[in-house]
Design a protein around this nucleic acid. Structure first.
Lengths: 351, 351
DNA sequence: CCTTGGCAGTCGTTTGGTGAGAGTGCCAGG
DNA sequence: CCTGGCACTCTCACCAAACGACTGCCAAGG
């Protein structure tokens, strides 16, 4: 394998870049003639053919069939993304749209959901926003609200401003002021711990306190455990928006491929796996074609970026589209929205 | 226009029924020959052709082209639905699936969302659940939770058990026990009123109290108004699930039609309008083809039913699919899930 | 050594035509 | 009123031929 992509000389690189760009723009296989016509090379089609043949030998290009032009392979795209791509600067409008959308609401959930919509619209691709289970995140406070006789709404606020609600059913009777006290107690006791840690402590406490007969404490623990349990089963943490946009892509014009694609997007588990793996990565990530199970089968490309505060990634935002997409535009878009979300979350934490 | 659909004699009715049923089953135009073969008529194809020609003259059938069989028109479907259809009884499994799903969670939002999924799976169509703004519904209680310095989470519980959260930002400073008091005050004062009524009262109070200098009351009012305002902008009240299922329907095999259909489903405003109009109707509603703007353009059929408690409809549940669908199966399905949701909500109200 | 024009060869797509098949409408006879 | 028969229409699948877009290779020229 070559280092730094130096296996290609300047001309070959330019040709590859032009082919990728033209192919992304038109969706068609690129012929030597159309390369010659574009004017960036002072070469005849025949010369370009030689260069193209070399690129094909090296695995950067492929021919759909003998009498067609060339299209980039996975490897070709990868090289383009790593060494040849010059990211477009976002337009004023794009930046404004994102900024406005992010500052529009204060509820993180809502902001994230809107972000996937905004992204899908700006990119004209499928927008994805992922927020993994809160089990790993620290809480700021926990409150309990009496909803009905034996129903209590627990409100958990994370240090990152995320609010999680859960209705807990219990046969124990709580009065309003008891709940008030319990909330204050738990918030004070467990501030800054993760839900997972809290649950473990509560469980340990049950064991220790069993002998004792502090009724109030027992009730507190019981309620606390209920509130913390199963928060992760809340499956509203993946937003996939703009699926209709893939209908416009010619690569999915075949109904069978379309159907498979839709089903793939509905199968959220795999997508979650993939996005989870993007979570730890710091910068922008671009995955194409054969580089992951998910993208391999469907010839997808994914541009993703984790967002969150400082050292703690909270989730992943990105787009999914056909492998042939404008990475040069998608990359800064995803990057920008990721930064915007991170900024938002850090602001929330300040409070 | 004929009353009671008596314009057709017994034989014509049977022929129409058979044609609709066969067409729904196969998706193809029905020929006189295939009618004769089905055995339900002791007639030759030629005789059936005469009947079919009559039905065509009356507008119940149409021919896609000269040398094709007949398919039902909107009018034909309408007649079938009103006079000819005999609803299938739900299978044990179907009923169990619905019952289980509905009793699975206590959070109404969650139940509704799941309902649209369940429906889409059982029906193999697009499942829709709509819950209109809460402005018209009565509240049971209102509580406020301090999330951050100047951020307060309001928790509104409706008499029907629906819980709405909203984060309110304010420059006023509230202490925990103040919030506690305010919640108690508002819950007591406004129990059973609708959000709309509450807002109006609060606004009136502002005016009346302006002269006075009861700081606490002013703060209460300010917070109350904020909490009640814009609840309806929360757009999470329409669940559309199973859009991929329309990919399997042969009528949408054409990519253009497919694309339009998806875009239509994404345009939620129109859908909301339509469902809103179903809200007041008591029983099951079936809308097809030209009978509404929404269904007209895309040749959709919609089976919908409002759910809620006793006299107060809370929302609408239904399915959307191609006009050619098994109404005889869809109708009881939607009906049953509507009843199940209503039951659930009434149970919640008991508490 | 690189570049270039030319030319043969390959392959996909379009076009036009043909025949089979399916279905109707109509008519005449039972 | 029902029925079989027949002529007519229209779609669809199929095939062949022509076309067009490329490439690969070669030999000539800078």
């Amino acid at each position: 394998m070559s280092q730094q992509g130096e296996e290609l000389d300047g001309r070959a690189r330019e040709v590859l870049r032009e082919i990728v760009m033209q192919h992304v723009a038109t969706g068609e296989a690129i012929s030597s003639r159309s390369l010659a016509k574009c004017g960036r090379f002072q070469l005849s089609p025949a010369s370009l053919r030689n260069v193209m043949a070399d690129l094909e030998d090296l695995g950067y290009l492929a021919q759909p069939h003998t009498s067609a032009g060339r299209i980039p392979t996975d490897r070709g795209y990868r090289f383009f993304i790593d060494y040849l791509m010059t990211s477009r600067v976002l337009t004023q409008l794009e930046r404004e749209t994102i900024d406005e959308q992010v500052s529009h609401s204060t509820e993180i959930d809502h902001v994230l959901h809107e972000a996937s919509l905004t992204l899908s619209r700006l990119a004209d691709q499928v927008g994805v926003v992922f927020m993994p289970t809160l089990l790993q995140f620290a809480i700021r406070s926990m409150d309990f609200v009496l909803v009905a006789e034996n129903k209590i709404l627990s409100v958990i606020v994370g240090t990152n401003g995320v609010v999680v609600n859960k209705v807990v059913e219990t046969r124990l009777n709580f009065k309003r002021d008891e709940l008030e006290k319990i909330g204050r107690f738990i918030s004070g006791e467990f501030f800054g711990l993760t839900l997972d840690q809290i649950r473990r402590r509560l469980v340990r406490m049950t064991e220790e306190e069993r002998a004792m007969h502090d009724q109030m404490l027992q009730k507190t623990i019981a309620l606390g455990i209920e509130a913390v349990n199963d928060v992760h089963t809340n499956d509203n943490d993946l937003y996939v928006e703009g699926a209709a946009s893939i209908l416009t892509k010619p690569e999915f014009s075949d109904t069978m491929a379309l159907r498979k694609t839709f089903l793939a997007l509905q199968e959220k588990e795999k997508l979650i796996d993939l996005l989870n793996s993007c979570l730890t990565e710091e910068g922008l990530q671009i995955l194409i074609g054969s580089e992951s199970d998910f993208t391999h089968v469907h010839n997808f490309g994914i541009v993703a970026k984790s967002y969150g505060s400082h050292n703690a990634p909270l989730g992943v935002v990105g787009i999914i589209g056909p492998m042939r997409m404008e990475y040069a535009r998608m990359a800064p878009l995803v990057d920008y929205i990721g930064r915007a979300l991170s900024r938002k979350i850090e602001e929330e934490e300040q409070l």
